[in-house]
């Protein structure tokens, strides 16, 4: 008959050559991957090596221009900007990864539970979601900070909490879109328990959705971390963070505007990187979802 059925993406490992070709042809994926990789390498290297130490304040070498010793110059306290950017990358990535990880680990099971158990559990999960949505990560951070004082952990927790409902919604939506599928009925006819069906059928089929959402949330988390550190609610000195660098550079903007540019570009590049990576992955993994944005 004339009915049209949705096409499914080929399973992983299938049509390998064409996937590689497609991957390299996807402009957003390539640019996103390169930017992300640069940030990852920068942050990763900073664990054991930076061009200069960043916790050494030396006013005698303040506001130095670009040189072979200080690649991007120094700030008003004489710290090497390039080294601080590298450490800032590490901070951003660690905070973002842990926060998004928290969101996924708690949010996805909750979302799947809400999709599987109609009635009270679903209602409870969805209402809790609504509640958390009413607390932007900044407000949660404000609450936590006013009790426990500022710190990077606060940022992680506050951003993580806000990620829970996001992943719960995506997981629930994905699971619900599968719920009418006959292969789930077939699995039940095979005597499989709801948990086993979720693990064997539902989770692999919504994995694409979750991965794409995770890259978007990573970029949002980097932005939030920068905002919190800018306000002084996140990462504390001597640890470097891009938001903190912007805060310090702001007072100097009339004399040394370049201090504002470097951390700003670092934030933009990393957020852009994760966003493009997400867009590219979405196009590659699921052609049906093309053109949609976060």
């Amino acid at each position: 008959m004339n009915q049209e059925f949705p096409s499914y993406p080929p399973p992983p490992g299938f049509e390998e050559i064409s996937i590689w070709k497609k991957t390299l042809n996807s402009r957003s994926f390539v640019i996103g991957a390169v930017l992300t990789l640069l940030i990852l390498i920068g942050g990763g290297t900073s664990v054991f090596w930076t061009p200069n130490a960043i916790d050494l304040l030396d006013v005698s070498r303040r506001l130095k221009p670009t040189s072979s010793e200080f690649w991007f110059g120094t700030d008003q306290y004489g710290r090497d900007i390039f080294s601080m950017l590298m450490v800032g990358a590490r901070t951003s990535i660690i905070v973002a990864l842990i926060a998004v990880g928290i969101g996924m680990l708690i949010g996805v099971p909750l979302g799947l539970l809400a999709a599987a158990q109609k009635g009270f559990p679903e209602e409870l999960v969805m209402r809790t979601n609504d509640l958390i949505f009413a607390f932007p990560s900044l407000l949660s951070a404000v609450l936590i900070t006013s009790i426990f004082g500022p710190g990077a952990i606060n940022a992680v927790i506050a951003i993580g909490i806000f990620n829970i409902p996001v992943f719960a919604r995506v997981a629930r939506g994905g699971a619900l879109s599968l719920s009418g599928r006959e292969f789930l009925l077939a699995a039940r006819l095979s005597g499989k328990s709801p948990l086993l069906i979720t693990v064997e059928h539902v989770l692999p089929n919504i994995a694409n959705l979750l991965i794409v959402q995770a890259t978007i949330q990573l970029s949002l988390a980097i932005l939030s971390e920068a905002g919190l550190s800018y306000l002084g609610l996140g990462t504390q000195p001597p640890m470097a963070s891009w938001g903190r660098m912007l805060y310090e550079a702001q007072t100097m903007v009339a004399f040394a505007p370049q201090l504002v540019l470097y951390p700003g570009f670092a934030i933009i590049f990393s957020v852009l990187g994760f966003n493009l990576l997400g867009d590219g992955l979405r196009d590659l993994l699921d052609p049906k979802m093309r053109r949609k944005v976060a």
Binding site: F5, P6, Y8, P11, G180, E182, F183, A186, E200, N205
Partner: peptide, 9 residues
């Protein structure tokens, strides 16, 4: 549905 009744993966 000959398409929906199999897990594509």
């Amino acid at each position: 549905d000959p398409y929906g009744s199999f897990d594509p993966r």
